[in-house]
């Protein structure tokens, strides 16, 4: 098995297809561990992983923590608020202090795009970007690709529609890179206020209507709408958004019969996705995503620790 020749996981943009495949295959091999009675292997015993979260997160932080623990790494969670970052200790000083404690991997979530790059340039430890601003969320895209591959048997040739606030979505950016690299056709949709400028240059087709985007789609990924964006006049009201961009029993028929529906969470039921779609096992793979997330993060921790079974 090949090794991952990378110090850090900062984004999918810098990843090769071989690297993505290696991570997905490694993750698949780890899936079984989470089904055991004793969900723990000694692989990363003696390694320490710091989860440095400057932004609220339940799912991703827990997922990284469980991933580390299942591999017997010591995991430490640090929650910091960005307000204290601005006024108090700088990211650079925090980084140097953490480095001095000699952990093996630092997982960082930050509201400022590029913060993981700054950290990676400062410390010798491996950095995993667990989401930076509207930039990238590589472990999310990897778990999404793993889920698609598991359900569809392939990624190449599939039509994947990403719907919602693309402008503010790091999940969208990482998935656009990853899915395009793996040969999928990616389309995005949302009102024009939610489509970032020149996104066509990333190789995606852009639609402003949900129906056009999901027509004949193999995969539909709905993105969370954040209510606070209403203040920036990105959209006038949740009510109007839901009327035109909510995935429901009617419009889902436009997609392929075997379409799968994904959501990175947390969901706004009734806003971007209707509850009966979210809970319908014929469509929804949302909980598979969460399950695969642990395996993908185990794979990342393992590969960055130099693992090559």
């Amino acid at each position: 098995m090949m090794k991952l020749e990378k110090k850090d996981i900062l984004g999918i943009r810098e990843m090769t297809v071989d690297e993505i495949n290696l991570i997905l295959e490694t993750a698949e091999s780890f899936l079984e561990i989470s089904t055991r009675d004793i969900k723990k292997v000694p692989t990363l015993r003696g390694k320490s992983v710091i989860n440095l979260f400057y932004e609220a997160s339940t799912r991703t932080r827990t997922s990284f923590e469980i991933a580390g623990k299942r591999l017997s790494a010591d995991t430490i969670n640090i929650s910091a608020s960005t307000s204290s970052v601005v006024k108090g200790e700088t990211l650079i000083d925090t980084a140097r202090n953490l480095e001095a404690m000699n952990p093996d991997i630092i997982v960082i979530r930050h509201s400022a795009a590029g913060a993981p790059h700054l950290l990676a340039s400062l410390v010798s430890q491996s950095i995993i970007n667990a989401g930076d601003g509207a930039h990238e969320h590589p472990s999310q895209a990897l778990l999404d690709m793993m889920t698609i591959k598991a359900k569809k048997g392939k990624i190449a040739g599939l039509k994947v529609a990403l719907v919602g606030d693309i402008l503010h979505s790091r999940v969208a950016r990482s998935n656009i890179y990853g899915l395009s690299k793996m040969g999928a056709q990616v389309v995005v949709a949302g009102p024009a206020t939610m489509i970032p400028r020149d996104i066509e240059r990333m190789g995606v087709k852009v639609y402003t209507k949900l129906d056009d985007a999901i027509a004949d789609a193999d995969v539909v990924m709905m993105l969370r709408i954040q209510l606070e964006r209403q203040k920036q006049n990105i959209f006038p009201s949740l009510r109007e958004y839901a009327q035109h961009y909510c995935l429901n029993r009617n419009n889902i028929k436009l997609a392929k019969d075997d379409v799968i529906v994904m959501h990175p969470g947390p969901m706004n039921r009734g806003v971007e996705i209707s509850p009966d779609i979210a809970d319908d096992p014929n469509y929804s793979v949302i909980l598979d995503q969460v399950n695969n997330g642990v395996a993908v993060r185990m794979a990342l921790l393992y590969l960055l620790s130099g693992g090559n079974e």
Partner: peptide, 15 residues
């Protein structure tokens, strides 16, 4: 600057 690079970097643009 708002444009392709702001889009891929996830940084808010100045048009």
């Amino acid at each position: 600057n708002e444009g392709y690079y702001a889009t891929i970097l996830g940084l808010p643009g100045i048009p």
